[in-house]
Design a protein around this nucleic acid. Sequence first.
DNA 1: CTGAAAGCGCTTACAG
DNA 2: CTGAAAGCGCTTACAG
Lengths: 330, 330
Amino acid sequence: MSSIRDVARLAGVSPATVSRVINGTANVSPERRDQVLRAISQTGFVPNEVARSLFKKSSKSIGLIIPNIRNPFFTQLAQVVDAVARQYGHHFLLCNVGTDLDEERTALQMLAALNTDGVVIASSNEEIQADLSRYKMPIVVIDALFETPDVNAYIYCDFYRGGQLAAQHLTECGCRSIVCIRGPQNLYSARARYQGYRDFCRAHGIQERVADCEYDFYSGLEAAERLLDRYPNTDGIIACNDLVAISIYKILHKRRISVPKQIQLIGFDDIALASVVSPELTTIHQPIREMGIQATKLILEPPIPPKSGQQHILPVSLVPRETTCWKKDA
Amino acid sequence: MSSIRDVARLAGVSPATVSRVINGTANVSPERRDQVLRAISQTGFVPNEVARSLFKKSSKSIGLIIPNIRNPFFTQLAQVVDAVARQYGHHFLLCNVGTDLDEERTALQMLAALNTDGVVIASSNEEIQADLSRYKMPIVVIDALFETPDVNAYIYCDFYRGGQLAAQHLTECGCRSIVCIRGPQNLYSARARYQGYRDFCRAHGIQERVADCEYDFYSGLEAAERLLDRYPNTDGIIACNDLVAISIYKILHKRRISVPKQIQLIGFDDIALASVVSPELTTIHQPIREMGIQATKLILEPPIPPKSGQQHILPVSLVPRETTCWKKDA
DNA sequence: CTGAAAGCGCTTACAG
DNA sequence: CTGAAAGCGCTTACAG
């Protein structure tokens, strides 16, 4: 790779002048400009971003940390963050860290060490809090809420309301024995959804029925088997997310239990898959796109909010489809 | 962020010594070592990767360029590349570039400018060839085959055989009117699969029936509608990938066409979803995991193959599941 | 074993 | 408008 010196030599100017024409950072006389441009295309010169970044202390990039690249919720989010970052002329760095706290820490450290201009983090470990307050780059926590105010913003949906809506919808659809498959209770997103369900039950004198599950396919398959054995007269299931709902459906289908006739089913997230799968999945919609846009803009568009943990809570909504028995005219 | 100088000052040594203990690159006396270590933890010092990378001309990272982060085929691949890279102590940079040639070029340039140690590229543009030969970092093309020998390796599956297998399986399952939904014909992967189907038809005196489609959900929905109108007596469908197969199924389900009784269906890829969806999808398995591992190791594990375009062709296999009527004992 | 020095490839005050 | 110089934060010959 040729360097700025090579170009300068070929163009008969100083490296500073080459830098100026590349960056349009100062006026350069037309003739020299042309010489430089010619030299650049002759050598195929591409400025070394690393050197640039070292000086500028910014790499014109934004990082996104997610726990599972196999969950479409996160890839839809990633796609949006990527697209918005690009609009702002920034690169996008995706770190897929799983549920391991150390991996998450390492990713954060790497993004900091890379002079990333900010990071959006969808964490699956509340213990990451202490780390978050150590960095001075902008950090936006998405799809979660922690206690530390030392981040620039929290962006998440009204999970509690989502849990209520799901319980209410199933009840209105005639379910009398609803099981809530809760996500990992160490996560705010899962806790709040469950609490929404729980409070709805309490307010309406409904008996609580609970099963536990992770956020992925495989865990969903297991949870479904357990649930059916434990609560044989179930007629409604609230899944912790759409992936799990799809797994549940699979088990019901295998056991020849008709959905929604015998058991009604509702998911959470409204990932693209939810409406492509057959039958189409009734679910609680999260505005993934809006969350991604807001998070990215908060970091890339001044003024960047101070590290005081401001909260942006987005609304969720019910999307009735084919796995519940609602009346169109209701 | 504190720098190596701060640590050195605090520890009462030179920056070189600090560097040596961080990297274990030379012996340092125990006392000084301890002082340095203490100073590091006191200051919370984290070495600046950018500076390191500038000097080393390597950023200990590997890039992956993919056309669509929403296609599980690519995220499964990404997960593997990420995992292997991590084992080798490298970072993983994912670039989601869509089908746009310019985006792809930009990503490549950025990865080069970032001193990436190599890139794995799953391109959707054969025109990218000229660019590939311009870089001297290792480049492995995955899931595609181009004409230029100026890359370190091509890794792809036996697409042609996959096309044949699909046609053969449907035929053996009793289909007499098979439609092949071809993927984008500017891609080798789609062309070769189609040719496998075509040659099978020719060899067996079967009439060819073709429809065109992109590799995503939405395109699959449209293709299904068109296909059913154009070939009303279809009894077998070969989809260009599993995502499209799932879309096709949806339309068939909506039109109350029974699968596999009235129409049998086979996908391509064998993404995780294929076996979670109901009914489970019969498909042609691609060894995604193995491809990802091979590609990553080719870059990270010496000896790195020369830029002579060696080809690694991996086998595909038929995975009969619930969308075709095969006999278990056959 | 240790430090002073040079340099990775850029960019930006600072003079002129 | 332009160039020489210093510096971004590291690492590694080179001496000692």
